[in-house]
Amino acid sequence: MTDTAEKPVQRRIRTGEGWGTYVSGAVIVLGCLLPFYWMMVVAFRDVGYTFSTIPWPTHVTFDNFVAALNTSSGNNMLRAIGNSLVISAVTTTAAVLLGVTVSYALARLKFAGKGFVTGIILAASMFPGVALVTPLFQLFTDIGWIGTYQALVIPNISFALPLTIYTLTAFLHDLPWELEEAARVDGATRGQAFRKVILPLAAPAVFTTAILAFIATWNEYLLASQLSRPNVEPVTVAIARFSGDNPYIQPYAAIMAAGTIVTVPLVIMVLIFQRRIVAGLTAGGVKS
């Protein structure tokens, strides 16, 4: 008798379950996913019914995707996707390579001014991007970089670096020091110990960080909108500038289709790696 009376109460206290938790969770999930859902509904709906408010998919067609990829109206989604891939890949590679070395130094070496360097990196991540647009535009105009890849890659690296450095520093900090010492006693130089022992162990964290940096760069709009020209513009800018056959009508359906093309691969990637991404975001925060 006492068993049956007490058990449910205990469970509720322990796990914090309850209808309130579910409702608030549902509200948050819906708030995040509804716009995305609507984008897909409109993308698959016939142009004539774009403004229909039926909440489920109707008049399903792939015409909008054809229109989105069509280059006759001055759009070039495929080129923009290629640009985005190039910019994101180069940025991610550079940010991770730099990030790993900086994080190693911050996590493992004693040197004067370490606190200062960490502070500067943190400050850089807090800096509002919009404040950089004008000076960067000015600078890149002067050196003739407007409309080049490096004009987009280099600022993106500086945005991605604080993130990579913070995640990796936390992770490297938690690796046992003795492993590196064991390697050095075993006859490895500091560099060899890092390459052969620390790096293989840090691989999951490096991978997570790379995904996070890639997503952040893929989604970057502000700087790209000012510093790029059509030949190098990434998808974010291409979608924003998307034009239809008739200059007086916004081609909403085609824009939604373009948006779907750009976001769906990213969402799938995040869903596949979500465990790792969460682990990477909380690295060092929780003692295991």
Binding site: P176, E178, L179, E181, A182, A183, R184, V185, D186, G187, A188, T189, V197
Partner: peptide, 17 residues
């Protein structure tokens, strides 16, 4: 450097790779 000393070490937590 440790690598030049020709010393082997056994650590408290073993430090196996």
């Amino acid at each position: 450097d440790p690598k030049e000393r020709d010393i082997a070490m056994v650590f408290q937590n073993y430090a196996l790779y």
